[in-house]
């Protein structure tokens, strides 16, 4: 059967419209962040500003410690990512290359946490962080996120694809597990580890729910929390400045995604849910 050109054209149209809905707001936000307030309301349909100005960014930098907030976001995202990668890698290695009692149960319990709603853990976690004096600190945001079930799962899937004989030969050569990890397994799963790392970094960079509970003062905020300040139901929403914060919040994730998209899409399409 040949797929009719007609049907193909219609589907291209549907995909284009969907892409437009997904991507247009992002492009629009970039333009709007350079529009003066009147321009934003009078020339709504112009994506590009008529009188481009840095006014919104100036207002933003004058009213918020933007650099400090960006730095906080960076610290949370990078520290959490490094720890999640290390703990996930070690756990995945144990699950793939060791036989021990209770392995299946432990794996099932850890992966099962993906399906636990966060509200079930939020009050006790808040109390723990409060108890150890980490409220209103980026470290309080980071601490519960040093391990990750999705990371264990994805790296586990990648390691399973390495032929077992490779590891057996290395063991027969009396190679230690540390060296096997570093010299054999890590190089082979590096693409997966890289994209999982980028996924973690962007995920924690964008995180909102947990930081909203932990962080109280503006100068300890991460970018998504700072952004939320500019849209309040109690009036005073300044959309043009909000767009400027949006641009600052999404610029790093956008650059990372656009530079590594082949890698990332590859990892998600090859890991498979089996």
């Amino acid at each position: 059967m040949r797929i009719s050109r007609h049907a193909e054209t219609i589907w291209h149209f549907i995909f284009m419209v969907t892409v437009l809905v997904m991507v247009f707001p992002i492009i629009y936000a970039f333009g709007m962040s350079f529009k003066p307030l009147e321009d934003a309301y009078n020339n709504v349909l112009n994506i590009l500003p008529i009188n481009a100005s840095l006014e919104n960014y100036r207002t933003l930098f004058a009213s918020l410690p933007v650099l400090k907030i960006t730095m906080n976001t960076f610290v949370v995202a990078s520290v959490a990512t490094v720890f999640k990668l290390v703990t996930s890698f070690l756990a995945a290695y144990a699950f793939v290359y060791f036989k021990f009692k209770g392995k299946e149960v432990i794996y099932f319990l850890l992966i099962g946490t993906i399906f636990i709603p966060f509200t079930v853990t939020m009050i006790p976690n808040y109390l723990i962080i409060s108890e150890i004096g980490m409220l209103d600190s980026v470290w309080g945001v980071i601490l519960p996120q040093l391990a990750d079930a999705v990371g264990i799962f994805l790296i586990h899937q990648a390691m399973k694809n390495i032929p077992g004989s490779l590891i057996e030969v290395a063991r027969l050569d009396n190679m230690g597990h540390g060296r096997i990890m570093k010299d054999i397994v890590l190089p082979l799963v590096r693409p997966a580890v890289t994209s999982v790392g980028i996924w973690f970094f962007i995920g924690t960079w964008n995180e909102f729910v947990w930081p909203v509970l932990v962080l109280k003062t503006t100068e300890n905020y991460t970018l998504p929390l700072a952004l939320q300040m500019f849209i309040s139901s109690e009036g005073g929403t300044n959309f043009t400045v909000a767009m400027a914060v949006s641009v600052i919040t999404m610029i790093i994730p956008l650059i990372l995604y656009l530079s590594f998209q082949k890698y990332i899409i590859g990892t998600f399409t090859s890991s498979g849910i089996k």
Partner: peptide, 25 residues
């Protein structure tokens, strides 16, 4: 590839950003 990249793109952007963009749109 273009469709895949473009449709996956918002997954990497903060949902707070998304909320604000769509509140305006």
């Amino acid at each position: 590839n273009f469709y895949k990249s473009a449709l996956f793109l918002p997954a990497f952007i903060s949902l707070v950003v998304g909320s604000i963009l769509f509140t305006w749109m």
